[in-house]
Computed example of a mutant assay.
Amino acid sequence: MMPSKDGGFIATIQQGFQGIFGHLATSKEEVLKKRGPMSAVEYEAVPGDDLDQRVQFFARQIPEHLGEWLKIYRKARGEYEVSGEVVRMAWQSTVGPPTPEMPEGKILREVFVFAESETNSDVPAEPLHLYLRHSANVAYDLHFGSAMMKVPEQNRLSFAEEIGTLLKDSDADSKYKV
């Protein structure tokens, strides 16, 4: 097996997946796992995993300047680490709107992302293509930062000590009262 310039491998069937890792890999999945997190623009799916094929498809749809900052790592079937956040992905079916050809609607299959939240177990699922785009934007912003992100934390304004009237406890005139 020889590494190629695009990060993939060239191998013969007789040799299997052997090469830069110093042992005989049993599958391409093992080779990809050894590579670790990959940027979205170069993400390579595990053969035979239709969900992972969708991840590759949508990851490569992200503009290159954003996608290079988004790191994706397939931990196991349906379990991924996207820019350090562990998420689950699964196919879900929905019924599309009715059409003259299909008056009862067409069944649509789409991959949804479920984030594991420590504070809230009811975090809603998000379609894969939107999740990857949002994650890429966040990764890009975290790397390059906005003007506010460039101000050191100790120099930022904070109003944590401020005591005020909660909206639920207020009336229309409470904002004028001191």
Rank of each mutant, 00 (worst) to 15 (best):
D6N: 03
G7T: 09
G8V: 06
G8L: 07
F9C: 05
I10A: 11
A11G: 07
T12W: 03
G16P: 03
I20N: 12
I20F: 10
F21N: 06
F21W: 08
G22C: 05
H23M: 08
H23P: 05
L24N: 02
E30F: 01
E30I: 03
V31C: 02
L32A: 05
K34Q: 01
G36Q: 02
P37A: 15
S39L: 08
A40R: 09
A40W: 11
V46G: 05
V46K: 08
G48M: 09
D50V: 14
L51F: 10
L51Q: 12
Q53P: 02
V55A: 12
F57P: 02
F58A: 08
A59W: 04
R60Q: 15
R60D: 06
Q61A: 06
I62L: 01
P63W: 02
L66D: 03
G67F: 00
E68V: 06
E68T: 05
L70A: 08
Y73E: 15
R74T: 14
K75A: 14
A76T: 15
R77I: 15
E79L: 15
E79C: 12
E79Y: 13
Y80V: 13
E81K: 05
V82R: 06
V86N: 05
R88N: 10
M89W: 10
A90F: 11
A90G: 13
A90V: 11
A90L: 12
W91C: 14
Q92P: 02
S93P: 09
S93T: 14
P98H: 04
P98T: 07
P98W: 03
E101W: 00
E101H: 04
M102L: 05
M102Y: 01
P103D: 00
E104I: 05
K106W: 01
L108Y: 10
R109C: 14
E110Y: 05
V111C: 12
V111L: 11
F112P: 09
F114L: 13
A115R: 08
E118K: 00
E118F: 03
E118L: 00
T119I: 05
T119Y: 04
S121M: 01
D122A: 06
P124Y: 07
P124I: 05
P124G: 07
E126M: 06
P127S: 00
H129K: 13
H129V: 08
H129E: 10
H129W: 07
L130W: 01
R133Q: 13
H134S: 11
S135D: 06
A136I: 13
N137D: 10
V138Q: 12
